[in-house]
Computed example of a mutant assay.
Amino acid sequence: MTLSFTKMQGLGNDFVVIDGVRQAIELTPERVRFLAHRRLGVGCDQVLLVEPPADPARAAFRYRIFNADGGEVEQCGNGARCFAVFVRDQGLTDQTLIPVETAGGLIRLQVEDNGQVTVNMGRPRFEPAEIPFEAPAVAPSYPLEVGGGSVEIGAVSMGNPHAVVRVEDVLKAPVESLGPIIESHPRFPRRVNAGFMEVLARDHVRLRVFERGAGETQACGTGACAAVVSGRTRGWLDERVAVDLPGGRLVIQWQGCEDAPVFMTGPATSVFTGNIKL
């Protein structure tokens, strides 16, 4: 079969986006790995699939996310912004406020007048069972045993699990060595995204993220949200924070109470469209 796709990127986090509304497509793990392969396929961090919603009264679309290793995951913030631009560019909707179903819950995408997209990412989850994370009770931070030592992490779900480590200098952080160890730590039964955050000021951080199933990426939207939530919970950050990632800047807002949603604002860009044989 021949598949039509659009290559998109949000702060260098790149995606193959597929219209599953107007073309029939079944994404097997093998097909996802082929599409994501940077030598044999299109090349991307994640493959995003647009589908009709399960509940049209509640959402306009269903949003599915597949990592480069073929596994399906619950949420991707940079992908969500690309999703919003894609469905409008493709004429699938003319709305600027777009409710979308994900495996991690309902999210709302707002296309701003300047072309940036604000995503209501929903409320953060701290209960260990909801992350999921093995811990006896909720805490602002937890010691995690790694490589014969211990690091202090904040654990939070933004529809997908995140572990946040504070570092002195994000450029010197052991992302390549420590990231995979945290990602596959046995206390995270579904693996975890590992974030390394340097706090520059109460409204400004730098962040690198080792994403499960993808490795370090240029940007991670849910990782930026989780970093700010964890930093605010631990008393380091204010309500509105600029998050500088290798691919660029996101702005994250969170009021600081458990029931309040997290808002993420940033760019999304179409790179090219094409067709590929599967």
Rank of each mutant, 00 (worst) to 15 (best):
G115S: 13
G115D: 07
T118C: 07
T118F: 07
V119N: 02
V119C: 02
N120G: 10
M121S: 08
G122W: 04
P124C: 05
R125W: 02
F126R: 07
P128A: 00
P128G: 00
E130A: 14
E130D: 15
E130M: 10
E130Y: 02
P132R: 12
E134V: 13
A135R: 05
A135V: 01
A135S: 00
A135N: 04
A135K: 01
P136A: 11
V138E: 14
A139C: 03
A139N: 10
A139E: 09
P140M: 03
S141Q: 11
S141I: 06
Y142W: 11
P143R: 02
E145Y: 06
E145R: 14
E145M: 09
G147M: 00
G148S: 12
G149H: 13
S150V: 15
S150R: 08
E152N: 14
I153A: 06
G154A: 10
V156K: 05
V156E: 01
S157F: 07
M158H: 10
G159S: 05
N160E: 05
P161L: 01
A163H: 06
V164Q: 04
V164G: 04
R166M: 12
V167L: 10
E168N: 08
V170N: 04
K172H: 10
K172M: 14
V175Q: 05
S177Y: 01
S177E: 12
S177W: 07
S177I: 07
L178I: 10
G179P: 06
P180Q: 03
P180N: 00
I181L: 10
I182G: 11
I182W: 06
I182A: 00
H185N: 02
P186T: 01
P186S: 05
R187D: 15
R187N: 08
F188K: 12
P189Y: 00
P189F: 09
P189N: 03
R190M: 07
R190L: 06
R190A: 15
V192Y: 13
A194T: 09
A194E: 11
L200C: 13
L200M: 09
A201L: 00
A201C: 03
A201P: 00
R202D: 14
V205H: 15
V205T: 11
V205D: 14
R206L: 01
L207T: 10
L207E: 13
R208Q: 06
V209P: 08
F210T: 04
E211W: 09
R212I: 03
R212F: 13
G213T: 01
G213S: 03
A214N: 08
A214T: 15
A214E: 09
G215Y: 05
G215I: 06
E216D: 01
E216M: 11
T217N: 07
Q218C: 07
Q218A: 07
C220Q: 08
C220V: 10
G221T: 09
G223N: 05
G223Q: 02
A224F: 09
A226L: 14
A227Y: 05
V229T: 09
V229C: 14
S230E: 00
S230N: 15
G231W: 12
R232F: 13
T233Q: 07
R234A: 08
R234M: 14
R234Q: 13
G235M: 04
G235Q: 00
W236D: 09
W236C: 04
W236A: 13
